[in-house]
Design a protein around this nucleic acid. Structure first.
Lengths: 130, 130
DNA sequence: AGTCTTCTTCTACAAATGTAGATATACGAA
DNA sequence: TTCGTATATCTACATTTGTAGAAGAAGACT
C-alpha cells in the first residue's frame, strides 16, 4: 500500500502538488524551473513515476495537458519517511533530532506557546516511574 | 569536504562504527548480520565505498582484517542530512516535524525537563515583534 | 484546412545503490 | 613449513534515480 520509496525529485514534485492541490505537468515543470533548470521531459518522467507508484493520479485534461492530484497525504508520506530517517541517521533515537530542531527552528511566540502546551501534556502523562 | 551523500546501507555501517568507535570489516559484517543476512563481500563493498567517500579510514590491521574508524562525526553527518530531509519532506519547514517528534518520541522526565529548559531559553530569546 | 506549438509517449543512458560471486593471499595452527 | 580458512580485491549485475532526446499527435491560431 503506497509503500514505495519516493526519491528526492519525486518528493519535490509532490510538494508542488500538495501546495497547488492539483496541477498539470506543464505547470509542474514551470514550478520546478523556478528553482532549477530542467527539461520538460525530465519532469514528465518524474510525474510518470509518481503515478506508477500511486502517489498521484490523473484527474483531468486541460487542452492536451493532463492534470494530476496527490493520492498520498503529507502525513502518509512524512510519517514513514521520518521513521526511516530517524532509524538511519539517529539509530532510531529521535531525541537528538528533537533537541536539535527545538534549538534551531525558526519559532515565533505562537509556535513556542504551542510547543509548551505539548510538553506540558507530555509531562502530565508521565508515569511515575519515568 | 565530505559532502558526498551517504546511502541507507552506508549509514547503517557507519552507525555501527560510531557505536564501536572502531571495528574490523568482519566485526561489522557480524553486526549487520545480527539484523539481516548479508554476505561478507556485500558489507565489504559498503566499507570500501565509505572509505572512498572519506567517511571512514583504515587505522590498523588485526591479523588479515583491517580496522576502520569514522572520520565524520555524528553531527557532521546528521546536520546536513537533517536539513536536506526537512527540505525534501517538509518543504523546509521543520515545525511540523518538531511537533510530531515532541508528540511521539519516548521521553522520560529528564528528557522533558531538558526540553522545557530549551523552550524556556527560546522564549526568553524572542524578539518583541515575534 | 493547414500549420505551428505544446504535450505525450517512448526510449536511452550514466551514476548510485544493494547485492554477491570468484579468485588470490596472508595468518595461524598443526 | 605447509595448509586450511578467513580476508581482501576485483568484477558483475539488476534496480533506482536523474536527466533528456526523438517522434508523434492533438489543440490553437490564421
Amino acid at each position: 500500500m503506497s509503500d514505495e520509496e519516493l526519491s528526492a525529485f519525486e518528493l519535490e514534485v509532490l510538494q508542488h502538488l500538495w501546495h497547488l492541490e492539483q496541477a498539470s505537468t506543464p505547470e509542474l515543470h514551470r514550478r520546478v524551473c523556478n528553482v532549477r533548470d530542467v527539461k520538460y521531459s525530465t519532469v514528465r518522467t518524474i510525474v510518470d513515476r509518481l503515478e506508477r507508484k500511486q502517489a498521484i493520479e490523473r484527474i483531468a485534461q486541460q487542452g492536451r495537458a493532463q492534470v494530476f492530484r496527490p493520492l498520498l497525504s503529507k502525513a502518509e508520506v512524512s510519517l514513514p519517511m521520518t521513521r526511516k530517517f530517524v532509524d538511519r541517521v539517529f539509530a532510531g533515537d529521535s531525541r537528538p533530532l528533537l533537541s536539535h530542531l527545538l534549538d534551531s527552528a525558526t519559532l515565533d511566540s505562537r509556535d513556542i506557546a504551542y510547543l509548551e502546551s505539548v510538553i506540558a501534556r507530555r509531562k502530565s502523562e508521565l508515569d511515575d516511574n519515568d
